[in-house]
């Protein structure tokens, strides 16, 4: 579904990605793990068109999307839930959700997507009139995912959905991610520092270190890998 090849990205003189390649098959949950500053966020931002690659290519459903502006990439069904959630803080939950459906005009489809979001995150339905900035961190994460789902994506990229969220809510959100993948057939690329959880729910994993992919394979196998255990899984 998504194919990244030889992607190099830099911020001025600092190289953030040194030519990474990976593929994501349709229907899968794939995770990209790595420590602080490894380049995970940079990878997602480049795929979704917020950043430009120096060299390399991003193909989505067989189409080269490397040079497309971000708003045209979303239109193709590739949605990015950014790090730090980035909900529209002064807008209500309802307005945030309707912004998620910005590119849709079919009212029936929008209503269907809304019902779907409410079925996954019932709490959003209770908070419709609340300003997004006043939600808790976990609720903001639900809203950010809900907003992305409103656009009917085929492929969802999540950047550290567990960041700064109470442990109790983290497991809920991870369950929902699996549910979204299973019941709705949305392919998922999950970026995490919480490698344990990410490897648990994904089928395949890539490990990123200072801008290069240093390890990849089935998540099950990586969980047993002694080297990975020592570095990312807390022994």
């Amino acid at each position: 579904m998504l194919q990244v090849s030889g992607l190099q990205v830099s911020y001025g003189a600092i190289a953030a990605l040194r030519g990474i390649s990976f593929t994501i098959p349709e229907g899968a949950i794939v995770t990209l793990i790595g420590g602080n500053g490894a380049g995970k966020t940079t990878t997602l931002r480049t795929i979704s068109g917020l950043l430009r690659a120096k060299t390399g290519k991003v193909e989505f459903l067989g189409e080269d999307i490397t040079a497309l502006p971000a708003h045209q990439i979303v239109a193709r069904g590739l949605s990015h839930v950014p790090e730090g959630r980035m909900v529209f803080s002064n807008l209500t939950v309802e307005e945030n959700l309707s912004m998620g459906a910005y590119l849709l005009s079919d009212k029936a489809l929008i209503a269907k997507n809304r019902d779907y979001v409410f079925s996954i995150f019932p709490r959003m339905k209770e908070r419709l009139k609340q300003t997004a900035g006043t939600l808790s961190g976990g609720e903001q994460q639900m809203l950010a995912i809900g907003r992305a789902l409103m656009g009917n994506p085929k492929f969802l990229m999540l950047d550290e959905p567990s960041l700064g969220i109470a442990p109790r809510l983290i497991s809920t959100i991870f369950e929902k991610i699996v549910e979204i993948n299973k019941n709705h057939g949305i392919t998922i690329l999950l970026v995490e520092q919480n490698a344990n959880l990410a490897l648990e729910i994904s089928q395949q994993a890539y490990v990123l270190e200072t801008g290069s992919i240093v390890m990849s394979g089935e998540s099950k196998k990586l969980r047993a890998d002694p080297q990975l255990k020592a570095t990312y899984l807390g022994g």
């Binding site: 502006p69 708003h71 949605s79 980035m86 909900v87 307005e95 910005y102």
Partner: peptide
């Protein structure tokens, strides 16, 4: 209106606005 909501969204967070498909 939709364009008005988009204006407020761009003003709050231009990146997030692009990510939902707004042509800033």
């Amino acid at each position: 209106t939709k364009i008005g909501t988009a204006m407020r969204a761009v003003s709050l967070n231009p990146k997030a606005a692009q990510l939902v498909g707004v042509n800033n």
